[in-house]
Amino acid sequence: MRKSVEAEEYHSKDFEWEELKNLVESDPSLSHHVRFRHDHESQGHDLGEDRDSFAQVDPQAWQNFHARHSSGKFFKERRYLLKEFPELLPHGENSKLLEVGCGNGSTVLPILRGCQNLTVYACDCSTEALVRTKENIDHSTVTSDNFHSFCCDFSRFEFPKWLACDHCRENVLDKQIGSHSDASCPSHELSSVQPTEEHRSADVSSKSPSTGDQCCIGGVDFVTLIFTLSAVPQKRMPRAIKECYSVLKPGGLLLFRDYGLYDMTMLRFEPEKCVGFREYMRSDGTLSYFFCLDTVKRLFTGAGFIEVELEYCCVKSVNRRKGKMMNRVWVHGKFQKPK
C-alpha cells in the first residue's frame, strides 16, 4: 500500500470513511440513501450482486452530454494520476496503455505529458467525446504521435482484436499511415465499434490485412478505468471488466478510480433519482453508481484479477464560492492479471 507520507501529500486520508458512514446512516434526512441498502439486506440480496436497474438507459445520453459540454471547461485535467499510479512512469519503449472511457481527455492528457514513451490507446462509447479528446490534445503542448483513439462501448461489445494482437495492431497502423488517415479520428480505421446498433459497421480493423485470421498473443501493459465503470449499468459491469482483462498482457495492471459509497455527489441525489442498488440517474439520462470496497473486490477478482491495492480515498474539498466543506469519497484500486 502507499506510504503514509504519500497519503498525506495526496490528501487521500483527510477523514475516516467509517466515521462518514456513521454520520450518513444516522442522519434522517439522508435515510433514502440507506433505506435501499436495508431493503436489499432484508430480502437476502448479496450487496455485490449485479441486477438490472429500474430505469431504461438511453444509449445516446453520453453522446448528448459531451455535445452540451463541448467547450471542455466542464472537466479538469487529472494531474494527480501519475502520483497515484507511479507504475506508469518506469516503462519500456514499447509499453502500451488502454484508457477506457476517455471522455474529453482529462485522463489521457497528463499521461501523454508525463509518459512520452508510452503508446496510448483510448476509447469511449461517444464519438463526441473522442472529438473533444482530439481537440484538447491538439490544443495542448503534448504530441499525438503515440496516441490513437477508437469508438467502443466495452460494456456491450468486444474490444477490436487488434488491440490484443501486436502483429495485427502494427498492420492496422501501417495501413493508416499509408493512406494518410488520422488515427485519432473515430471515423477512420480504428473506429471498429459504433455507439449504437444502428451505426455498427463491419470490423475492418479486427484482422490483419496481410495475415487474415492469424493472431499472436500480445495485449497492453496497462488499462486505466478512471470514473468510467460507475457510468455502466450494474448488470453489465462483470462483462465490462472481463473485456478489460482480455486485452491485458499476463502480469499487466488495471488502474482503477471511481466514486465511493457516501461520496458527496451521492448524497445530493434526491430519492426519485435512485434507480437501483447504489445507482442513480441524472436528469440528462446518464448513470452514476457508488462503490464500496467489497463490491469492487468481488467484481475484479471474479473476472480473474489479483488485488494489489484497494482503499477509499477520503478528501475534504472546499467550495470557495459557497464557503462549504465537502466530503469526497473515491475508491482507489490496482489489479493485476496473473502472469
Rank of each mutant, 00 (worst) to 15 (best):
P195F: 05
E272D: 14
E25T: 05
H91Q: 15
L130C: 05
L293W: 03
V204A: 04
C215E: 15
A7G: 03
G302Q: 08
Y289V: 11
N104P: 13
N117Y: 10
L30T: 00
S317M: 10
R282G: 02
G105Q: 01
G101P: 06
R78A: 12
M325G: 08
D258A: 04
S208R: 02
R68D: 12
F15K: 09
S187K: 12
K96I: 06
L118Q: 10
F36I: 15
I111K: 04
Y10N: 13
G92R: 03
G212W: 05
P160T: 05
D138Y: 08
A67W: 03
F147E: 04
G219Y: 00
M281I: 11
G333P: 09
C216W: 04
R113C: 12
E18C: 07
E158D: 14
L173D: 01
E84L: 14
V247P: 00
C168L: 05
D263E: 06
P160C: 09
V318K: 15
R51E: 15
I241L: 03
D284R: 08
H199I: 13
L190C: 09
L47M: 13
I226S: 02
E41I: 11
P90K: 05
R79C: 11
I306F: 06
E6H: 02
D138T: 08
G218D: 05
H332L: 15
E77S: 02
K83S: 11
S179A: 11
C125M: 13
L97T: 07
S201M: 11
G103H: 01
L163M: 13
K297E: 15
C115R: 09
V247L: 03
F300A: 00
K134W: 13
Q56I: 11
E77Y: 05
N22Y: 09
R68A: 11
D50E: 15
S210H: 15
Y262I: 01
F85H: 02
C244V: 01
L310G: 10
V34T: 14
K3E: 14
S206L: 07
S288E: 10
L81Q: 05
H148N: 06
K273T: 07
P238M: 08
N171V: 06
S230C: 15
H199L: 14
R298T: 09
H148A: 09
H199W: 14
I241R: 04
D52K: 15
P338R: 05
Y245M: 07
S126M: 01
E25C: 07
H45V: 12
L293F: 01
